[in-house]
Design a protein around this nucleic acid. Sequence first.
RNA 1: GGGCGCGUAGCUCAAUUGGAUAGAGCACCGGAUUUCUAAUCCGGUGGUUGCAGGUUCAAGUCCUGCCGCGCCUACCA
Length: 667
Amino acid sequence: MYRDLEHRLAQRIAEFLRSRYPDASLPSVVIEQPPKVELGDFAIPLFPFAKPLRTAPLKIAEAICAGIGSIEGIAEMQVAPPGYLNVKIDRASMAVALSADQKPPAEVPAGKILVEHTSINPNKAAHIGHLRNAILGDTFVRLLRYEDREVDVQNYIDNTGVQVADVVVGFTQIEKKSRAEIEALTRQPRFDYYCWDLYARVSQWYAQDKNNLQARRETLHAIEDASSDTAAIAELISTAVLRRHLETMDRLDIEYDFLPRESEILHLNFWDAAFAKLKEAGVLTYENEGKNKGCWIMRRAGTTSKASTTENAEDTEEPEKISEEDQKVIVRSNGTVGYVGKDIAYHMWKFGLLGRDFNYRKFYRYPNQHECWISAMQGEKDHPHFGNVAEIYNVIDARQSEAQNTVIEALRGLGHNEAADHYTHFSYEMVALTPRCAAELGYTLSEEDKARSYIEVSGRKGFGVKADDLLDRLIASAKNEVDSRHPQLTDAERLSIATQIAIGALRYFMLKFTKQSVIAFDFKEALSFEGETGPYAQYAVVRATSIFKKAEIDLESFCRDVARNVSAESFTKFLAGNNADEFWELWQASAKTSYIVDQCIATTEPAYLAKHAFQLAQLFSAFYHRHPILSEPDEKRKRFLLATVAVVRREMIRTLAVMGITVPPLM
RNA sequence: GGGCGCGUAGCUCAAUUGGAUAGAGCACCGGAUUUCUAAUCCGGUGGUUGCAGGUUCAAGUCCUGCCGCGCCUACCA
């Protein structure tokens, strides 16, 4: 609604200026929000137009104001020094539309979108860093689905890499466990915790004696032979840990559609297909000398050749030499392909550019019956179609941006500029621990670490907060509160509420920071249920609902009735006039949800959504406190206040739902 | 050394991507409920936006140079 109106306004102003000044080349019309509600709903700064039009900004504003005529949905325009045009929405008609939950028709762009997130190495328990990834990714998926885009969610599983090999080494070399014993262990409830500790021990074992690293090399090699016992053990472990990850994420209501695995990328020869194309296009070059002698290399992303900056028309004869430090090894001198190479092949598949496909089988069925598929050597005959998408988003932390850019450059080198342009590295910063938090967890810190503002989590060292532990703590903490507030409920009911609160707190916490900010994790902040938190927003919804409950008004029929029978006049009475701004603020904020969703998608920044949820809740809480509704004697005014609550409540629930947060029946 | 990013209130973070008086939460101080739930609300204290220049009608935001911090920079993934 709001988004639509803003768009129309910008268009009309641009048209007006074009017709008034046909010869001038004009900058685009920027619309922003005035600092205070009294000033209006939209503000157009006219300073950028002063020079091209050779007219003072104020004069331009006056000209628009006087000449533009009426615009549907806009009530009035005002000129504001030193050069703004402030625009007010026709409040009553906007309120009528909002009450009826009208949505202007929007055309949904064609083409499927693939979002890849989570992608945890299946060799240990998920930790808070992985939670940030999964929550950002899942929220982005929900944002896209809110706009009716078709989305596939993929979780890439690196089941043949060093990290899995290390845990295999732990079981076979350190613990001397047999395959049967390991199989029994995988059936333990939290097998991933066992691996967490073991993985840390393996790292220590390597550090003790460099010769121990030989075991890693041998294991890594053995895993590649799918028929070996070692490969079977690796498969056993990685599959069991993967299952645990899916369970952990399911606690947060995060689901996947497809799990492509590195083992299939390897054994279905994706790389061979990609390698041939990359060689043919000259993206990869064979290195004859230096430290990378015998490797197939690519130019490292972000580095530029000296020659290409000048206008060298056609120098394809002589592929220019990449300096050693700008070389990225894709295929090692022993012929094995590295991670980036496999990623290039995988991304060619994503865009349908590889000419090969996975085989698929069912892997995990969610309690809601949703089916999650996995790549396999022998697949099922009937399966959904994955890959071959128009657009991709990879939720991967900022440390991997160079690798991501290398993949994009490879696609460009192959001539797939269209694909490269629709490849978005959804980059975010890591979650680290505050020194206080680390100490709390029982780690001894060096003096140097104590002085830092945060310390990086390390799976290798077993240093971090496990996702399930954090969730358990959040639930326990919320349960304490619910127990004392609602002793009349059954234990199961209280647990269910506490769980919703815990998830609300966690998801909000991970989303309130902008992506590029490192989260210095601290239990005190993460466990907080007050102030700018998920529970604050949930609580606002609960209060809104309880008004209707107490009055024994059925919310749905009330909304239906308002939508059908309300007139603009009945709203005007309360939304116009001098003291109406405090009410209008609620309606205006409620109107913005789609606008905010747009913004989140365009900037790949879900934090704006969290801000929106908080703003709605804050406005509502103040309103709730100031205006007793049920005791309101004026029936018409009471009805207006209820209509206000109903709309704000609806938008809060919607916004929270996009963040993956549900609202408990009471708190 | 090179690449990417960060530096804003005591602490943790925002700032509609260059716009009007830099805003929230926490902490601290003082207040509010016989009322629809106090996981709430209202008020107060708190700022030379790391430093120095520059561009612009307008700079926390862009450019240059410093200072400090983090990450990346393996024939690991």
